[in-house]
């Protein structure tokens, strides 16, 4: 199952000792494509495996990750038609059936492979700082009408030094994904089948060029990982880390970007091209403004008209004068009427 996670901007991906992230070769863990050195067949290897047997020629093979950046790609397995259907179904669902395919005009649908930097390895290090414990203390103090209870927050700091070792898995987008609707998306690589990225593929597929350099990605990763190892609520004063078996690689993930027009606005939807689920979508919002005015204005009008009909234009004139004085500029009466009616009864999408 593929996952692109929506999370707070600036918060990279999963880390910590999630057993599924430990790198242990469990079934269903991510796999990587490789070529048998004996017969040239295509094989798959689980992350962390050092040796494997070719299922075609039975040769025993040793696998190593050489130093340097590797590049992987996940092939799209969802067709354009399926992506379009998923987006339109999502739209109908989010708008309660009010906006369907026939209400929209699809402008653009394209498949693009989006790069992420991923860093994994074993983090070992030391962190020193202060653990902050906050307590609410109630004390009784004399007051003008006898005693009263006052709450005060007390802070206690206790220094700590801890040594940590944990498997980490961190990722960040390698280019600006704002327009793709993927800001703050992180990549979970487990249970996915990655293939070696061949730049020759770029003749036939669209890829987004990584703009963030490897050095910048590494720095950002280490900066995040240092905060990860600290106890929550603590102040870190100093730390030192080593990342063992560091693997910094680029992963290309497939997404469909669909743009459609509804009314006079353009909306975009991003669909995961590995499993077809909608990652993010802008949908036309129903403007709820004016629903109370829809009842209050007719009720007041009916009351005034029922009491004495000329009260209605008198009240309208008073409201007009009030609006003009508040705006500080003259407004033509017909424009004012349209604006007021629009503010009261201008619902819809």
């Amino acid at each position: 199952m593929a996952e692109l996670l929506q999370q707070e901007p600036g918060t990279p991906a999963v880390a910590a000792d999630d057993p599924h992230q430990s790198g242990e070769a469990v079934s269903g863990a991510e796999t990587y494509g490789m070529t048998c050195a004996a017969c040239g067949a295509s094989l798959r290897i689980h992350e962390g495996e050092r040796s494997v047997r070719c299922q075609y020629c039975n040769a025993a093979l040793y696998v190593a990750a050489p130093a340097g950046v590797r590049t992987w790609i996940l092939r799209a397995s969802v067709s354009e038609g399926a992506a379009r259907l998923a987006a339109l179904h999502h739209l109908a669902e989010k708008t309660g059936g009010a906006v369907k395919a026939r209400h929209t005009s699809i402008l653009d649908l394209r498949l693009i492979y989006v790069p992420f930097w991923r860093m994994s390895g074993r983090l070992a290090g030391r962190i020193s700082g202060d653990e902050v414990i906050r307590r609410v203390v109630e004390t009784t103090v004399p007051g003008p009408d006898g005693t009263r209870v006052v709450k005060r927050t007390e802070e206690e700091r206790s220094p700590f030094t801890k040594y940590v070792c944990k498997r980490i898995d961190w990722s960040t987008p390698a280019c600006a994904l704002r327009y793709l609707g993927l800001q703050g998306i992180a990549l979970r690589t487990r249970m996915l089948a990655w293939d070696v990225f061949d730049h020759g593929m770029r003749e036939t597929i669209h890829t987004a060029l990584p703009m963030k350099t490897a050095e910048r990605a590494r720095e950002d990763g280490y900066r995040y990982l240092a905060t990860l190892a600290a106890p929550s609520g603590s102040i870190v004063r100093s730390s030192r880390f080593d990342l063992l078996g560091e693997d910094l690689s680029i992963y290309y993930f497939p997404v469909y970007i669909l743009r459609y027009r509804h009314g006079d606005r353009i909306y975009s939807t991003t669909i995961d091209a590995s499993d077809g689920h909608v990652i993010r979508a802008d949908v036309p919002e129903r403007r709820e403004r004016g629903s109370r005015a829809l009842f209050i204005v007719p009720a007041v009008t009916a009351f005034l008209a029922g009491t004495w009909l000329p009260l209605v234009p008198i009240a309208a004139a008073a409201l007009y004068i009030y609006d003009v004085v508040r705006a500080g500029a003259p407004v033509m009466p017909h424009r004012w009427i349209v604006a007021r009616l629009g503010a009261w009864f201008g619902g819809g999408r």
């Binding site: 349209v338 604006a339 009616l341 629009g342 503010a343 009261w344 009864f345 201008g346 819809g348």
Partner: peptide, 9 residues
């Protein structure tokens, strides 16, 4: 200003 909608009117 937003235009009044016919259903609303």
């Amino acid at each position: 200003a937003p235009a009044p909608s016919a259903p609303g009117l």
